[in-house]
């Protein structure tokens, strides 16, 4: 390796560590500032809480055994609605691809449903399904499903027409075109949609938990705000950011694995 190359590598590495350091530093700085200003009474710690109090709240919740329970519930609801809406998304996109006329007929309805703020349907869902997990799952699916269908269907439509022609020269039946061409060529579309989908489901689940208010992290936040326990509210939000990151990271991992398989 030449000296120049070594210098370049060193420089690149240095930059990488600097960025990492600054990222942590920013967090640390923010937490310190928050803690100090609440300890010294610059801000009202009753309304704004403090890192120390948040940690304390979480420890208490953990000791009560409810912390893991609530995390588990939210995680379960998110994953369930994610799998259901991914599956239904692929299924419905397939139906639309199969019967072109179906897609054309439903197009305006999808447009309306897609732009409708689904939260508006919340109270109705609550009345239909009752204050239970069903409402939450339904809410999450409502939010994620339409966009999933549209994305996947777009991907299905964009498949190279030469490849479809090739399949036809082998006298492939429609289901074979789907099975051997449409589906595998859209693996990356489906994964990209999953990334969006998991965030959407997460939003839906939290919204559902706000409405149903029985258990889960959304419930913790709602309950905290009602009894004016801001420590609990902020603990809930911190938990959410960890969970959201973990969910997103797992989809990224899935993507990496599927790409590696191809090369």
């Amino acid at each position: 390796m030449s000296k120049e190359q070594q210098k370049f590598l060193k420089e690149t590495k240095r930059k990488k560590y600097l960025i990492l350091f600054l990222q942590f530093f920013l967090l640390f700085f923010f937490l310190c500032l928050w803690q100090i200003s609440s300890s010294l009474g610059w801000i009202n710690s009753f309304i704004f809480s403090s890192p120390g109090k948040v940690i304390q709240t979480m420890i208490t919740l953990f000791k009560e055994g409810s912390l893991l329970h609530h995390i588990g519930i939210t995680l379960f609801e998110t994953l369930l609605s994610f799998f259901l809406s991914s599956l239904l998304g692929i299924l419905i996109a397939t139906i639309l691809w199969w019967w072109d006329i179906c897609a054309k007929v439903l197009d305006p309805y999808f447009t309306v449903l897609n732009s409708l703020p689904k939260v508006a349907l919340g109270p109705m869902i609550l009345i239909w399904f009752g204050a239970n997990m069903k409402s939450i799952i339904f809410m999450a699916m409502l939010i994620s499903l339409i966009i999933s269908i549209l994305n996947i269907y777009q991907g299905f439509k964009k498949v190279d027409s030469e490849k479809i022609k090739l399949m036809k020269t082998f006298y492939a039946k429609k289901w074979q075109i789907w099975r051997y061409l449409i589906l595998p060529s859209n693996a990356s579309t489906i994964i990209a949609t999953s990334k969006l989908n998991i965030s959407m489901c997460f939003i839906g689940v939290i919204m559902g938990e706000f409405l149903v208010s029985k258990e889960g992290i959304g419930y913790l936040i709602m309950y905290g705000s009602q009894v004016f326990n801001l420590n609990l509210v902020i603990s809930g939000i911190v938990l959410l950011s960890f969970l959201a990151t973990a969910l997103y990271a797992s989809i990224l991992l899935l993507e990496k694995l599927s790409i590696r398989r191809r090369d």
Partner: peptide, 9 residues
């Protein structure tokens, strides 16, 4: 065909 239309996967 005009293109090779090979399946990349």
């Amino acid at each position: 065909l005009q293109t090779d239309a090979l399946f990349e996967w």
